Amino acid sequence: MKVLDLYERATKVPVVGRAAFSLAFGLKAPYFLTIAPSVVELRPNHAAVRIRKWWGVHNHIGTVHVIAIANGLEMAMGALAESTIPAELRWIPKGMELEYLAMADSTILATADTDPADWTQPGEVDVRVEATRVDGTVVVRGVIRLHVSERKKRERTLSAVAG
């Protein structure tokens, strides 16, 4: 089943479903779980992940560590990519460029966005990412660059069976 389908089914049970989906998605790349993430929005070309401010993500001055934020941005990017990419294509991260703009002294919303035209053929896709405090201040902004390629015939067959 596709990621977006799972998200839509899970969020029919608002709190428990969202928590279960976030946990399951985090288990695909267990490092994501270090930030106790919650996927709060998911649709083609957009994803949002909440990173709660708690001691497990603090840096030495008590704000949310920028690497925890980068982890949340990468999770949002991955959710977006999985819910957007056509079945005949596959993706892999190629690089990340982030600007640290302000201190992260609250819960953070990590978002990822692309345009529909970005996913029409193999090549590079620049996923725009942004992390925002609860007061609306952007604390991190950047791009995660993906390499998008065609799936091999066997992968396409497996993808069709799984989807």
Rank of each mutant, 00 (worst) to 15 (best):
T84M: 07
T84V: 09
S38I: 06
R133C: 04
V13G: 01
L101S: 08
A47V: 04
A112N: 09
V138H: 05
A117H: 13
R145E: 03
H58F: 12
E97I: 03
S22L: 01
L89K: 01
L33C: 05
M1W: 10
M96Q: 06
V3D: 00
A48H: 03
E8Q: 15
M1R: 08
V140M: 06
M75R: 00
E155A: 14
A19G: 01
E155T: 10
V161S: 01
I85Y: 09
L98S: 05
S159N: 09
E88V: 13
H60M: 08
L80Q: 04
G26Q: 02
G17K: 01
V39W: 00
T63P: 04
N45H: 11
L101Q: 08
A24P: 07
K12Y: 15
G95H: 13
V57P: 03
A162Y: 15
R141E: 07
R90E: 14
V129N: 02
Y31K: 00
Y100D: 02
S38C: 04
D105W: 06
A10L: 03
G95I: 09
D105P: 10
M75H: 02
T111Q: 08
E41M: 02
D135Q: 10
M96I: 10
V39N: 01
N71Q: 14
E8G: 02
A47Y: 04
A112V: 14
P122M: 12
G163N: 14
A87Y: 13
W54S: 07
G95M: 08
V13Q: 09
T132Y: 09
R156N: 06
E82L: 14
W119Q: 07
S159Y: 13
V39T: 06
E97Y: 13
P122R: 12
M96L: 11
H147A: 12
L146P: 02
R90S: 11
A81L: 14
R154V: 09
S83N: 01
M103A: 14
H147C: 04
A117I: 14
W54P: 02
A104M: 08
L23N: 00
K28A: 12
R90A: 11
E41K: 10
L4Q: 02
V40I: 14
W119E: 06
L80W: 04
R43D: 00
N45E: 09
T63N: 07
A160N: 14
T120Q: 12
V13R: 11
E99Y: 15
I92F: 12
G72K: 01
P86N: 00
F21W: 10
T11M: 06
W119P: 04
M77P: 03
E82T: 08
K94T: 13
